[in-house]
């Protein structure tokens, strides 16, 4: 295999693993971090955070600037309000991205104004920035199938080392966990006081969990055949 392909494979693997790991966070690993929930931040979906990081923070800031000039603090506040499912934006990241955008000529900084104490620099979108933003907005996101499915990795290894019953047992327990999480999201979605953003985020989670669940159901049907295949053809 050419080294480039290997690197690409590795990158996809890591990304895919991260995304799925985010989705199933907390299901297998013990809780390592708990997020404090305040009003407007009911869902701390790390999956959404990962998606946000997959797309450029720069484009997101550009979009927020489309409404008019803002300074960094306002941008951070608006981001947190409009994307409650994402991790709150750190100031450092905001300013670093704004600086990057300014260097690329996509935003321009006006003179600092003193407002309630600290200096605040308002930023505006340049025409080049507007073009770039519109190009990005209309660009179609290439749907990428995740090359490595961590669940199937586990199933394969279980079959190779311990046999069918263990693999099936794992799949069933994973299914229960998935459904349990789906129940939680459904309950959240059904609450009358959930905001539209929260409902959309819950929908996304549910759709993906459902996709995994269907795969698990199919795997349960096919695990016997997979076992046969694994044990009959040796690895090259």
């Amino acid at each position: 295999m050419a080294p480039g392909t290997f690197v690409a494979f590795g990158v996809f693997f890591v990304l895919g693993f991260t995304l799925h790991g985010a989705l199933h966070a907390g299901l297998s690993a013990p809780a390592s971090r708990a997020f404090r929930l305040t009003r407007g931040r009911r869902l701390t979906g790390l999956f959404t955070q990962c998606i946000v990081s997959l797309m450029s923070t720069g484009h997101m800031l550009l979009g927020l600037l489309a409404e008019g000039e803002r300074h960094g603090y306002e941008l951070k506040r608006e981001h947190d309000a409009r994307f409650p499912a994402a991790r709150p934006l750190a100031f450092g990241q905001v300013y670093a991205t704004l600086e990057r955008l300014r260097k690329s000529g996509l935003v321009s900084a006006a003179t600092s104004v003193k407002v309630d104490g600290p200096q605040r620099t308002p930023f505006t979108m340049t025409p080049a920035g507007r073009d770039e933003f519109e190009r990005w907005l209309t660009e179609v996101q290439p749907p990428s199938p995740y090359v490595a499915n961590p669940l199937s990795v586990k199933v394969t290894l279980a079959l190779l080392t311990a046999g069918e019953p263990l693999a099936q047992d794992f799949l069933r327990r994973q299914r229960d966990a998935h459904l349990g999480r789906m129940r939680e999201y459904t309950r959240l979605k059904s609450r009358p006081d959930s905001s539209l953003a929260e409902v959309l985020a819950a929908d996304y989670a549910l759709t993906h969990l459902d996709a995994d669940l269907r795969w698990i159901d199919a795997a349960l049907e096919r695990v016997a055949e997979l076992n046969k295949e694994l044990h009959s053809c040796p690895v090259r």
């Binding site: 991260t18 790991g21 985010a22 966070a25 907390g26 690993a29 013990p30 809780a31 390592s32 971090r33 708990a34 997020f35 929930l37 009911r42 869902l43 701390t44 979906g45 790390l46 990962c50 939680e184 309950r187 959240l188």
Partner: peptide, 12 residues
């Protein structure tokens, strides 16, 4: 590794 996620108690 991403950490766990906690929903408000009354969601469970």
């Amino acid at each position: 590794m991403p950490g766990s996620m906690t929903l408000p108690d009354h969601i469970h």
